[in-house]
Design a protein around this nucleic acid. Structure first.
Ligand SMILES: [Mn+2]
Ligand SMILES: [Mn+2]
Ligand SMILES: [Mn+2]
Ligand SMILES: [Mn+2]
Lengths: 218, 218
DNA sequence: ATCTATTTTTAGATTTGTCTAAATTTAATT
DNA sequence: AATTAAATTTAGACAAATCTAAAAATAGAT
Protein backbone atom coordinates (compact mmCIF):
# COMPACT_ATOMS: atom_id res chain seq x y z
CA UNK A 1 0.00 0.00 0.00
CA UNK A 2 1.68 3.19 -1.19
CA UNK A 3 1.20 6.61 0.33
CA UNK A 4 -0.62 7.76 -2.78
CA UNK A 5 -3.01 4.82 -2.71
CA UNK A 6 -3.75 5.49 0.95
CA UNK A 7 -4.50 9.13 0.22
CA UNK A 8 -6.91 8.22 -2.55
CA UNK A 9 -8.80 5.77 -0.33
CA UNK A 10 -9.04 8.33 2.46
CA UNK A 11 -10.35 11.00 0.08
CA UNK A 12 -12.91 8.68 -1.45
CA UNK A 13 -14.13 7.81 2.03
CA UNK A 14 -14.42 11.45 3.02
CA UNK A 15 -16.45 12.11 -0.11
CA UNK A 16 -18.92 9.45 0.94
CA UNK A 17 -17.65 6.51 -1.09
CA UNK A 18 -17.90 4.20 1.90
CA UNK A 19 -21.64 3.79 1.49
CA UNK A 20 -21.56 2.15 -1.95
CA UNK A 21 -22.18 5.64 -3.34
CA UNK A 22 -20.29 6.34 -6.52
CA UNK A 23 -17.81 9.21 -6.29
CA UNK A 24 -16.92 10.93 -9.53
CA UNK A 25 -13.45 11.26 -10.91
CA UNK A 26 -13.80 15.03 -10.95
CA UNK A 27 -14.85 15.25 -7.32
CA UNK A 28 -11.82 13.24 -6.25
CA UNK A 29 -9.50 15.26 -8.48
CA UNK A 30 -10.79 18.53 -7.08
CA UNK A 31 -10.47 17.38 -3.48
CA UNK A 32 -6.92 16.11 -4.00
CA UNK A 33 -5.84 19.01 -6.18
CA UNK A 34 -4.85 16.71 -8.97
CA UNK A 35 -6.11 16.03 -12.51
CA UNK A 36 -9.07 13.79 -13.40
CA UNK A 37 -6.86 11.71 -15.66
CA UNK A 38 -4.61 10.87 -12.72
CA UNK A 39 -7.65 9.79 -10.75
CA UNK A 40 -8.72 7.49 -13.57
CA UNK A 41 -5.31 5.82 -13.53
CA UNK A 42 -5.47 5.29 -9.78
CA UNK A 43 -9.09 4.09 -9.95
CA UNK A 44 -7.94 1.28 -12.24
CA UNK A 45 -5.09 0.34 -9.95
CA UNK A 46 -7.22 0.34 -6.79
CA UNK A 47 -9.87 -1.63 -8.61
CA UNK A 48 -7.25 -4.23 -9.61
CA UNK A 49 -6.34 -4.54 -5.94
CA UNK A 50 -9.95 -5.00 -4.89
CA UNK A 51 -10.09 -1.79 -2.86
CA UNK A 52 -12.65 0.06 -4.97
CA UNK A 53 -15.44 -0.78 -7.34
CA UNK A 54 -14.85 1.17 -10.50
CA UNK A 55 -17.18 1.46 -13.47
CA UNK A 56 -15.85 3.45 -16.40
CA UNK A 57 -17.49 6.86 -16.69
CA UNK A 58 -19.49 6.16 -13.51
CA UNK A 59 -17.00 6.71 -10.69
CA UNK A 60 -15.72 4.67 -7.77
CA UNK A 61 -16.92 3.43 -4.42
CA UNK A 62 -14.98 1.63 -1.73
CA UNK A 63 -15.18 -2.13 -1.27
CA UNK A 64 -15.25 -3.52 2.25
CA UNK A 65 -11.48 -3.89 2.10
CA UNK A 66 -11.21 -0.30 0.88
CA UNK A 67 -13.35 1.02 3.73
CA UNK A 68 -11.27 -0.92 6.21
CA UNK A 69 -8.05 0.56 4.88
CA UNK A 70 -9.47 4.09 4.73
CA UNK A 71 -10.66 3.85 8.32
CA UNK A 72 -7.27 2.68 9.51
CA UNK A 73 -5.62 5.71 7.90
CA UNK A 74 -8.22 8.06 9.36
CA UNK A 75 -7.76 6.43 12.75
CA UNK A 76 -4.03 7.04 12.59
CA UNK A 77 -4.49 10.62 11.40
CA UNK A 78 -6.81 11.52 14.24
CA UNK A 79 -4.86 9.73 16.95
CA UNK A 80 -1.70 11.56 15.88
CA UNK A 81 -3.62 14.84 16.00
CA UNK A 82 -4.64 14.12 19.58
CA UNK A 83 -1.07 13.18 20.44
CA UNK A 84 0.28 16.41 19.02
CA UNK A 85 -2.20 18.51 21.00
CA UNK A 86 -2.22 16.59 24.28
CA UNK A 87 1.40 15.56 24.55
CA UNK A 88 3.31 18.14 22.52
CA UNK A 89 1.20 21.28 23.02
CA UNK A 90 0.43 21.83 19.37
CA UNK A 91 -2.60 24.03 18.72
CA UNK A 92 -5.54 22.55 16.85
CA UNK A 93 -4.76 24.57 13.76
CA UNK A 94 -1.20 23.19 13.55
CA UNK A 95 -1.81 19.47 13.68
CA UNK A 96 -3.40 18.55 10.38
CA UNK A 97 -0.36 19.05 8.17
CA UNK A 98 1.90 16.96 10.37
CA UNK A 99 -0.76 14.27 10.81
CA UNK A 100 -0.97 14.01 7.02
CA UNK A 101 2.58 12.69 7.16
CA UNK A 102 2.34 10.65 10.35
CA UNK A 103 -0.78 8.78 9.20
CA UNK A 104 1.37 6.86 6.69
CA UNK A 105 3.83 5.41 9.20
CA UNK A 106 3.56 1.65 9.01
CA UNK A 107 3.57 0.03 12.43
CA UNK A 108 0.52 -1.40 14.07
CA UNK A 109 2.27 -1.52 17.41
CA UNK A 110 3.15 2.17 17.18
CA UNK A 111 -0.39 3.41 16.69
CA UNK A 112 -1.80 1.03 19.31
CA UNK A 113 0.73 2.32 21.85
CA UNK A 114 -0.08 5.94 20.94
CA UNK A 115 -3.75 5.09 21.44
CA UNK A 116 -2.95 3.63 24.86
CA UNK A 117 -0.72 6.57 25.83
CA UNK A 118 -3.63 8.90 25.08
CA UNK A 119 -6.02 6.71 27.07
CA UNK A 120 -8.05 5.68 24.03
CA UNK A 121 -9.57 9.00 22.99
CA UNK A 122 -12.89 8.94 21.12
CA UNK A 123 -12.59 12.28 19.35
CA UNK A 124 -9.79 14.26 17.74
CA UNK A 125 -8.98 17.93 18.46
CA UNK A 126 -11.57 19.06 15.91
CA UNK A 127 -14.28 16.88 17.41
CA UNK A 128 -14.09 14.25 14.69
CA UNK A 129 -14.69 10.69 15.90
CA UNK A 130 -11.74 8.29 15.99
CA UNK A 131 -12.57 4.90 14.46
CA UNK A 132 -11.80 1.96 16.73
CA UNK A 133 -9.18 -0.61 15.81
CA UNK A 134 -11.87 -2.79 14.28
CA UNK A 135 -13.24 0.07 12.21
CA UNK A 136 -16.26 1.24 14.15
CA UNK A 137 -17.21 4.89 14.50
CA UNK A 138 -18.34 6.58 17.69
CA UNK A 139 -21.47 8.20 16.34
CA UNK A 140 -22.80 11.20 18.21
CA UNK A 141 -26.04 13.11 18.04
CA UNK A 142 -24.81 16.47 16.88
CA UNK A 143 -26.41 19.39 15.08
CA UNK A 144 -25.08 22.52 13.47
CA UNK A 145 -25.42 25.52 15.76
CA UNK A 146 -27.25 27.29 12.93
CA UNK A 147 -29.95 24.65 13.01
CA UNK A 148 -31.02 24.49 16.63
CA UNK A 149 -34.03 26.55 17.74
CA UNK A 150 -33.94 29.80 19.66
CA UNK A 151 -33.61 29.38 23.43
CA UNK A 152 -32.17 25.89 23.14
CA UNK A 153 -28.60 25.25 24.16
CA UNK A 154 -25.84 22.71 23.63
CA UNK A 155 -22.21 21.91 24.08
CA UNK A 156 -19.87 22.74 21.25
CA UNK A 157 -18.43 19.38 20.15
CA UNK A 158 -16.93 19.87 16.73
CA UNK A 159 -16.14 22.00 13.70
CA UNK A 160 -17.39 21.36 10.19
CA UNK A 161 -14.78 23.60 8.60
CA UNK A 162 -11.40 22.80 10.09
CA UNK A 163 -9.38 25.22 8.01
CA UNK A 164 -6.61 27.11 9.75
CA UNK A 165 -8.29 30.53 9.37
CA UNK A 166 -11.54 29.29 10.89
CA UNK A 167 -9.79 27.61 13.81
CA UNK A 168 -7.76 30.73 14.47
CA UNK A 169 -10.91 32.82 14.35
CA UNK A 170 -12.51 30.57 16.96
CA UNK A 171 -9.45 30.86 19.21
CA UNK A 172 -9.48 34.62 18.90
CA UNK A 173 -13.11 34.71 19.96
CA UNK A 174 -12.63 32.18 22.75
CA UNK A 175 -14.95 29.70 21.13
CA UNK A 176 -13.69 26.26 22.09
CA UNK A 177 -14.93 22.68 22.09
CA UNK A 178 -16.63 21.96 25.38
CA UNK A 179 -18.17 25.41 25.70
CA UNK A 180 -21.88 25.57 26.38
CA UNK A 181 -23.72 27.80 23.92
CA UNK A 182 -27.28 29.05 24.13
CA UNK A 183 -29.03 30.61 21.15
CA UNK A 184 -30.70 33.80 22.36
CA UNK A 185 -31.93 35.31 19.16
CA UNK A 186 -31.77 34.97 15.40
CA UNK A 187 -31.58 37.95 13.03
CA UNK A 188 -33.83 37.32 10.04
CA UNK A 189 -31.94 39.68 7.76
CA UNK A 190 -28.57 37.92 7.70
CA UNK A 191 -29.26 34.82 9.82
CA UNK A 192 -26.70 35.93 12.38
CA UNK A 193 -27.16 34.68 15.94
CA UNK A 194 -27.03 36.31 19.33
CA UNK A 195 -25.63 33.68 21.68
CA UNK A 196 -24.67 33.27 25.28
CA UNK A 197 -21.43 31.37 25.82
CA UNK A 198 -19.73 30.76 29.16
CA UNK A 199 -21.50 33.72 30.75
CA UNK A 200 -20.84 36.19 27.95
CA UNK A 201 -23.17 37.34 25.22
CA UNK A 202 -21.98 37.74 21.66
CA UNK A 203 -23.14 37.89 18.06
CA UNK A 204 -21.89 35.43 15.45
CA UNK A 205 -22.53 35.32 11.73
CA UNK A 206 -24.43 32.53 10.04
CA UNK A 207 -21.20 31.35 8.44
CA UNK A 208 -19.71 30.69 11.85
CA UNK A 209 -22.84 29.05 13.25
CA UNK A 210 -23.11 26.81 10.20
CA UNK A 211 -19.64 25.41 10.88
CA UNK A 212 -19.99 24.60 14.57
CA UNK A 213 -21.42 21.30 15.76
CA UNK A 214 -23.26 21.25 19.07
CA UNK A 215 -24.70 18.43 21.09
CA UNK A 216 -28.05 19.59 22.38
CA UNK A 217 -28.67 19.42 26.12
CA UNK A 218 -31.71 17.26 26.92
CA UNK B 1 14.70 16.80 -0.11
CA UNK B 2 13.24 13.37 -0.96
CA UNK B 3 13.26 10.39 1.35
CA UNK B 4 15.72 8.65 -0.92
CA UNK B 5 18.13 11.59 -0.93
CA UNK B 6 17.97 11.73 2.85
CA UNK B 7 18.77 8.04 3.11
CA UNK B 8 21.79 8.40 0.85
CA UNK B 9 23.17 11.30 2.88
CA UNK B 10 22.69 9.40 6.11
CA UNK B 11 24.44 6.33 4.73
CA UNK B 12 27.36 8.34 3.37
CA UNK B 13 27.75 9.95 6.78
CA UNK B 14 27.70 6.59 8.55
CA UNK B 15 30.39 5.34 6.19
CA UNK B 16 32.62 8.23 7.19
CA UNK B 17 31.92 10.64 4.35
CA UNK B 18 31.51 13.52 6.75
CA UNK B 19 35.26 13.95 7.15
CA UNK B 20 36.03 14.82 3.53
CA UNK B 21 36.87 11.13 3.07
CA UNK B 22 35.73 9.72 -0.25
CA UNK B 23 33.21 6.90 0.00
CA UNK B 24 33.06 4.49 -2.91
CA UNK B 25 29.99 3.80 -4.96
CA UNK B 26 30.24 0.13 -4.12
CA UNK B 27 30.40 0.70 -0.37
CA UNK B 28 27.27 2.81 -0.49
CA UNK B 29 25.49 0.32 -2.71
CA UNK B 30 26.33 -2.55 -0.40
CA UNK B 31 25.22 -0.66 2.72
CA UNK B 32 21.94 0.38 1.14
CA UNK B 33 21.30 -2.94 -0.58
CA UNK B 34 21.05 -1.31 -3.94
CA UNK B 35 23.11 -1.40 -7.15
CA UNK B 36 26.23 0.71 -7.79
CA UNK B 37 24.66 2.19 -10.89
CA UNK B 38 21.82 3.56 -8.81
CA UNK B 39 24.36 5.13 -6.46
CA UNK B 40 26.10 6.82 -9.36
CA UNK B 41 22.82 8.37 -10.47
CA UNK B 42 22.12 9.67 -6.98
CA UNK B 43 25.70 10.91 -6.56
CA UNK B 44 25.20 13.14 -9.60
CA UNK B 45 21.93 14.45 -8.27
CA UNK B 46 23.25 15.19 -4.79
CA UNK B 47 26.31 16.79 -6.33
CA UNK B 48 24.05 19.05 -8.43
CA UNK B 49 22.33 20.10 -5.23
CA UNK B 50 25.62 20.88 -3.49
CA UNK B 51 25.20 18.20 -0.84
CA UNK B 52 28.13 15.99 -1.85
CA UNK B 53 31.42 16.38 -3.66
CA UNK B 54 31.51 13.78 -6.38
CA UNK B 55 34.47 12.91 -8.58
CA UNK B 56 33.83 10.32 -11.25
CA UNK B 57 35.41 6.97 -10.41
CA UNK B 58 36.61 8.37 -7.06
CA UNK B 59 33.52 8.38 -4.88
CA UNK B 60 31.63 10.96 -2.84
CA UNK B 61 32.06 12.92 0.36
CA UNK B 62 29.60 15.20 2.10
CA UNK B 63 29.78 18.98 1.79
CA UNK B 64 29.07 21.10 4.86
CA UNK B 65 25.45 21.33 3.75
CA UNK B 66 25.40 17.55 3.29
CA UNK B 67 26.78 16.94 6.78
CA UNK B 68 24.21 19.30 8.23
CA UNK B 69 21.36 17.48 6.54
CA UNK B 70 22.69 14.05 7.48
CA UNK B 71 23.01 15.07 11.11
CA UNK B 72 19.48 16.39 11.21
CA UNK B 73 18.17 13.04 9.93
CA UNK B 74 20.31 11.13 12.43
CA UNK B 75 19.11 13.44 15.19
CA UNK B 76 15.51 12.70 14.31
CA UNK B 77 16.15 8.96 14.04
CA UNK B 78 17.73 8.76 17.46
CA UNK B 79 15.22 11.01 19.20
CA UNK B 80 12.37 8.92 17.84
CA UNK B 81 14.12 5.79 19.10
CA UNK B 82 14.30 7.28 22.58
CA UNK B 83 10.66 8.28 22.35
CA UNK B 84 9.59 4.78 21.38
CA UNK B 85 11.48 3.21 24.28
CA UNK B 86 10.78 5.77 26.99
CA UNK B 87 7.22 6.75 26.19
CA UNK B 88 5.77 3.76 24.36
CA UNK B 89 7.62 0.84 25.99
CA UNK B 90 9.21 -0.45 22.82
CA UNK B 91 12.25 -2.66 23.36
CA UNK B 92 15.59 -1.52 21.94
CA UNK B 93 15.49 -4.16 19.24
CA UNK B 94 12.10 -2.95 17.94
CA UNK B 95 12.78 0.73 17.45
CA UNK B 96 15.12 0.98 14.49
CA UNK B 97 12.68 -0.07 11.79
CA UNK B 98 10.01 2.39 12.90
CA UNK B 99 12.57 5.18 13.38
CA UNK B 100 13.66 4.63 9.77
CA UNK B 101 10.21 5.87 8.81
CA UNK B 102 9.74 8.55 11.46
CA UNK B 103 13.10 10.21 10.69
CA UNK B 104 11.64 11.49 7.41
CA UNK B 105 8.70 13.37 8.92
CA UNK B 106 9.10 17.01 7.99
CA UNK B 107 8.33 19.32 10.91
CA UNK B 108 10.96 21.14 12.88
CA UNK B 109 8.48 21.91 15.63
CA UNK B 110 7.57 18.25 15.98
CA UNK B 111 11.12 17.03 16.60
CA UNK B 112 11.91 19.92 18.91
CA UNK B 113 8.85 19.13 20.99
CA UNK B 114 9.74 15.44 21.09
CA UNK B 115 13.22 16.46 22.24
CA UNK B 116 11.67 18.58 24.99
CA UNK B 117 9.20 15.85 26.01
CA UNK B 118 12.15 13.50 26.47
CA UNK B 119 14.06 16.11 28.44
CA UNK B 120 16.79 16.55 25.82
CA UNK B 121 18.41 13.12 25.89
CA UNK B 122 22.07 12.86 24.88
CA UNK B 123 22.11 9.21 23.81
CA UNK B 124 19.72 6.87 22.04
CA UNK B 125 18.67 3.42 23.32
CA UNK B 126 21.76 1.84 21.74
CA UNK B 127 24.09 4.36 23.34
CA UNK B 128 24.61 6.34 20.14
CA UNK B 129 24.99 10.08 20.70
CA UNK B 130 22.17 12.38 19.58
CA UNK B 131 23.41 15.40 17.62
CA UNK B 132 22.23 18.73 18.97
CA UNK B 133 19.94 20.99 16.95
CA UNK B 134 22.98 22.86 15.67
CA UNK B 135 24.73 19.67 14.61
CA UNK B 136 27.17 18.99 17.43
CA UNK B 137 27.89 15.53 18.76
CA UNK B 138 28.19 14.58 22.40
CA UNK B 139 31.51 12.77 22.18
CA UNK B 140 32.30 10.26 24.90
CA UNK B 141 35.44 8.46 25.90
CA UNK B 142 34.44 4.89 25.22
CA UNK B 143 36.33 1.71 24.48
CA UNK B 144 35.35 -1.73 23.30
CA UNK B 145 35.07 -4.15 26.18
CA UNK B 146 37.46 -6.43 24.30
CA UNK B 147 40.14 -3.77 24.47
CA UNK B 148 40.34 -2.83 28.12
CA UNK B 149 42.94 -4.53 30.31
CA UNK B 150 42.30 -7.31 32.79
CA UNK B 151 41.12 -6.13 36.21
CA UNK B 152 39.87 -2.80 34.85
CA UNK B 153 36.20 -2.08 34.86
CA UNK B 154 33.71 0.22 33.18
CA UNK B 155 30.08 1.01 32.59
CA UNK B 156 28.45 -0.44 29.51
CA UNK B 157 27.41 2.57 27.44
CA UNK B 158 26.74 1.33 23.93
CA UNK B 159 26.63 -1.39 21.31
CA UNK B 160 28.68 -1.47 18.13
CA UNK B 161 26.46 -4.06 16.47
CA UNK B 162 22.85 -3.05 16.95
CA UNK B 163 21.30 -5.90 15.00
CA UNK B 164 18.15 -7.45 16.40
CA UNK B 165 19.79 -10.84 17.15
CA UNK B 166 22.63 -9.22 19.09
CA UNK B 167 20.29 -7.02 21.10
CA UNK B 168 18.08 -9.98 21.92
CA UNK B 169 21.11 -11.97 22.96
CA UNK B 170 22.11 -9.18 25.34
CA UNK B 171 18.60 -9.07 26.82
CA UNK B 172 18.59 -12.82 27.31
CA UNK B 173 21.89 -12.60 29.17
CA UNK B 174 20.82 -9.55 31.18
CA UNK B 175 23.54 -7.40 29.69
CA UNK B 176 22.16 -3.87 29.60
CA UNK B 177 23.45 -0.35 29.14
CA UNK B 178 24.35 1.09 32.52
CA UNK B 179 25.68 -2.17 33.90
CA UNK B 180 29.13 -2.10 35.46
CA UNK B 181 31.42 -4.74 34.01
CA UNK B 182 34.80 -5.83 35.31
CA UNK B 183 37.15 -7.94 33.21
CA UNK B 184 38.40 -10.76 35.42
CA UNK B 185 40.31 -12.87 32.98
CA UNK B 186 41.07 -13.31 29.30
CA UNK B 187 41.36 -16.71 27.61
CA UNK B 188 44.28 -16.67 25.17
CA UNK B 189 42.95 -19.48 23.04
CA UNK B 190 39.69 -17.84 21.83
CA UNK B 191 39.96 -14.37 23.38
CA UNK B 192 36.84 -15.00 25.43
CA UNK B 193 36.47 -13.04 28.67
CA UNK B 194 35.50 -13.92 32.19
CA UNK B 195 33.65 -10.89 33.54
CA UNK B 196 31.88 -9.78 36.65
CA UNK B 197 28.66 -7.89 36.03
CA UNK B 198 26.22 -6.66 38.64
CA UNK B 199 27.48 -9.17 41.18
CA UNK B 200 27.43 -12.18 38.90
CA UNK B 201 30.32 -13.81 37.09
CA UNK B 202 30.00 -14.98 33.50
CA UNK B 203 31.97 -15.84 30.39
CA UNK B 204 31.44 -14.02 27.11
CA UNK B 205 32.95 -14.65 23.69
CA UNK B 206 35.27 -12.25 21.96
CA UNK B 207 32.54 -11.50 19.43
CA UNK B 208 30.32 -10.18 22.19
CA UNK B 209 33.06 -8.19 23.92
CA UNK B 210 34.10 -6.64 20.62
CA UNK B 211 30.60 -5.21 20.16
CA UNK B 212 30.10 -3.64 23.57
CA UNK B 213 31.29 -0.14 24.37
CA UNK B 214 32.30 0.64 27.93
CA UNK B 215 33.28 3.85 29.59
CA UNK B 216 36.22 3.06 31.84
CA UNK B 217 35.97 4.03 35.50
CA UNK B 218 38.89 6.37 36.25
C1' DA C 1 54.84 -1.01 -19.07
C1' DT C 2 51.30 -4.21 -20.04
C1' DC C 3 47.80 -7.17 -18.84
C1' DT C 4 43.91 -8.29 -16.03
C1' DA C 5 40.52 -8.25 -12.53
C1' DT C 6 37.66 -5.15 -10.27
C1' DT C 7 35.17 -1.04 -9.86
C1' DT C 8 32.47 2.41 -11.81
C1' DT C 9 29.83 4.57 -15.24
C1' DT C 10 26.76 4.77 -19.23
C1' DA C 11 22.87 3.48 -22.00
C1' DG C 12 18.56 1.91 -22.16
C1' DA C 13 14.51 -0.14 -19.80
C1' DT C 14 10.93 -0.36 -15.91
C1' DT C 15 7.67 1.20 -12.29
C1' DT C 16 4.96 4.70 -9.99
C1' DG C 17 2.60 8.69 -10.16
C1' DT C 18 1.74 12.51 -12.48
C1' DC C 19 0.62 15.73 -16.54
C1' DT C 20 -1.35 17.63 -21.31
C1' DA C 21 -3.96 17.19 -25.25
C1' DA C 22 -7.00 14.59 -27.91
C1' DA C 23 -10.73 11.31 -28.18
C1' DT C 24 -14.77 9.32 -26.23
C1' DT C 25 -18.84 8.92 -23.49
C1' DT C 26 -22.53 10.80 -20.94
C1' DA C 27 -26.01 14.12 -19.86
C1' DA C 28 -28.62 18.12 -20.87
C1' DT C 29 -31.05 20.97 -24.31
C1' DT C 30 -33.28 21.98 -28.09
C1' DA D 1 -33.56 12.49 -32.39
C1' DA D 2 -29.92 15.46 -33.05
C1' DT D 3 -26.91 18.83 -31.08
C1' DT D 4 -24.02 20.56 -27.64
C1' DA D 5 -21.67 20.99 -23.27
C1' DA D 6 -19.46 18.69 -19.66
C1' DA D 7 -17.24 14.85 -17.69
C1' DT D 8 -14.23 11.09 -18.32
C1' DT D 9 -10.92 8.28 -20.46
C1' DT D 10 -7.04 7.30 -23.52
C1' DA D 11 -2.59 8.11 -25.52
C1' DG D 12 1.67 9.70 -25.02
C1' DA D 13 5.10 12.23 -22.30
C1' DC D 14 7.84 13.18 -18.11
C1' DA D 15 10.39 12.98 -13.53
C1' DA D 16 12.10 10.05 -9.82
C1' DA D 17 14.26 6.03 -8.53
C1' DT D 18 15.52 1.87 -9.65
C1' DC D 19 17.49 -2.14 -12.53
C1' DT D 20 20.42 -4.97 -16.23
C1' DA D 21 23.90 -5.33 -19.51
C1' DA D 22 27.60 -3.30 -21.84
C1' DA D 23 31.41 -0.04 -21.95
C1' DA D 24 35.03 2.51 -19.72
C1' DA D 25 38.33 3.54 -16.15
C1' DT D 26 41.15 2.27 -12.29
C1' DA D 27 44.25 -0.40 -9.58
C1' DG D 28 46.97 -4.54 -8.82
C1' DA D 29 50.08 -7.97 -10.49
C1' DT D 30 53.25 -9.54 -13.37
MN1 LIG E 1 -6.69 16.53 10.11
MN1 LIG F 1 -8.97 16.39 12.71
MN1 LIG G 1 18.45 3.00 14.58
MN1 LIG H 1 20.03 3.73 17.52
Amino acid sequence: MTRSEENYLKTIFHLGGGDAKSITTNAIAEQMETKPSSVTDMAKKLSEKGLVDYVRYQGVSLTDAGVKTALSIIRKHRLWEVFLVKKLDFTWDEVHEVAEQLEHIKSEKLIDKIDELLDFPKYDPHGDPIPTKDGKFQERDEKLLSEIPINSQGVCVGVKDSSVPFLKFLDKNKIALGNTIKVLDKEDFDNSLRIQMEGKEMRISHQIAANLYVKKNN
